[in-house]
Design a protein around this nucleic acid. Sequence first.
DNA 1: TAGGGCATGTGGTCTGACCACATCAAGTAG
DNA 2: CTACTTGATGTGGTCAGACCACATGCCCTA
Lengths: 232, 232
Amino acid sequence: MRTHELVLQWIEKQISDGELTLGGRLPGERAMAEQLQVSRTSVREAVRILEAMGVVRAGVGSGKDAGTVVIAEPGTALGSTLRLHVATRHLPVADIVETRVLLESWAAKRAKAGTPALEEGAELLDEMDAGPDVGTFLALDSRFHVALAQAAGNAVVSAMMASLRGAIENYAGELTRNLPNWEATSMRLRAEHRAILAAVNTGDGAGAAELVASHITGFYAEAGVAPDHAEH
Amino acid sequence: MRTHELVLQWIEKQISDGELTLGGRLPGERAMAEQLQVSRTSVREAVRILEAMGVVRAGVGSGKDAGTVVIAEPGTALGSTLRLHVATRHLPVADIVETRVLLESWAAKRAKAGTPALEEGAELLDEMDAGPDVGTFLALDSRFHVALAQAAGNAVVSAMMASLRGAIENYAGELTRNLPNWEATSMRLRAEHRAILAAVNTGDGAGAAELVASHITGFYAEAGVAPDHAEH
DNA sequence: TAGGGCATGTGGTCTGACCACATCAAGTAG
DNA sequence: CTACTTGATGTGGTCAGACCACATGCCCTA
C-alpha cells in the first residue's frame, strides 16, 4: 500500500470515529507527518485527494480561514469528476442530461411544500425576472434547480443533481449562444419555473415532475442536444 | 491559482482536445514537470487527484502496466467520495439507499432485453446458486445489479449506481451479520433476482422496476436500516 | 495610546536525492 | 547457437530540507 493511502486511511478513520467532524481542523501537515512517521509529501498528497473529494478545504495564513478544515461539498467534487469523464468521451452529455431529468423529476415529485428551500427558490425567480445578464440568469437558474432538489429532502440526490449540472456547466453556457432568441427563451424558462413551483406548492407532485422533465429536455432540445434515449 | 491546478488544467485540456485518449499514456512526471516549468511535486499532486477521480492509473516499472495511463472508472472514484461524505455524517445512509432504489428502478424499467449485460447477469445468477460464501455472494450480487443498470444504456446512471453501492459496501457487509438466517435470505434474494431478470426479458419494465425497488428496500429493512423517506 | 514591525505558524512550492520495480539488451557460460 | 545472468534504463514512490507567501497577533516603540 502506498504511503499516501495510509495517511488517507488514517484521516478517514478519524472522521468515521468522530474525532474529526464537520468544521473541524486537521493537524498541521508537519505534525501529521511526524505523528504517522511519513514525509510531508505523502501527507500532502492525501490532503490533496480529500480536497478533490470536497471533504476538506486547505487555507494558508493563520486565523479563521487557515489550516485544513473538514467541509462537506460533495456536489462540486462529483461535478469535477464527471466533467473529466465527459472529456474522455466515456460519459456522453446526453446521458448526463437524461440523468438530470430522472433525478430532478423525482425530486419535484417528492418536494415538500412550505420548505425553506422552496421559499428561497421563489426569491430566486424574482431575481431572474429583474432582467439580469445571461451569465447571472444561468447562475440563478442553477440555484433554483438545486433548491428544488433540496426540497425533496434527500442529500444524495441533491448532491448528484448539482454535480450533473456542474459537469456540463461550461457546455450549457456555450449552448445559450446557439439560441435564436435569448429573450424569448428566457421568458419561457421563467414561466416554466413559476409553473413548476406552483405545482409543487399545491401538492401536485406528479404534475411538477412532468413540468420539470419537459423544462429540461426542452432547453437542451432547443439548444441542439438530442438525448439518445429520450423516447424509450 | 495553485501550481498543481495549473497542471490539472493542462492535462484536462489535453484530454478535451483529444490529445490524450482512453488507454493513452501521459508523459513521464519528470517530462511534464520540465515541459510546464513546474516541479515534479506539483505534477504528482495533479496526477494524484486524477487518480482519485478514476481518470488515470499510475503504475511503476516498465512495460505494459507502467506509466500513467488514462482510464475510465468513474464508479469507484465516485464511490470513495460518497463513502467519505457518509463518514462525515453529511450524507445519510438512508438517502444512499433511497437513491439506489430510484436509479435502479429506472434502469430496470428502461433495460433492453437481449443485451449482453443481461446475459452476463444470468450467468452471475447461476454462480450465486452454486452456493458461494457470503462475501462472494455479495460480490456477485453487486455485479448483477451493475449489469442490470448497464442494460439500460445510460453510462452515467450505471456509474452512479455502482458508486452508491460502493459507498456503503462495507456497511452492507456488516449488515449481513445482523440477519437472523442467511440461508433463507440468500434463497429469497436469488428468487427475486430471477423474477427481476424475467420481467426485464419479457419486456415488463414497470414490473421489473417494482420488483427491484422492493428487492432493495426489503434487504435493508430486514437488515435493520429504515429509510427515512420510504413512504413519501 | 496608536502605530509599525517582527515572531509565529499555516499551506504552497521547489530541489535533489534515493528506492523498488519491471523490462530489455548485452554479455557470458554452457 | 542457446540459455541464463547481469546490468542499464526508465517508471512511479518516497524522502529530507529548504524557502516562499500569507495572515494573524504580540510586542515594542514613538
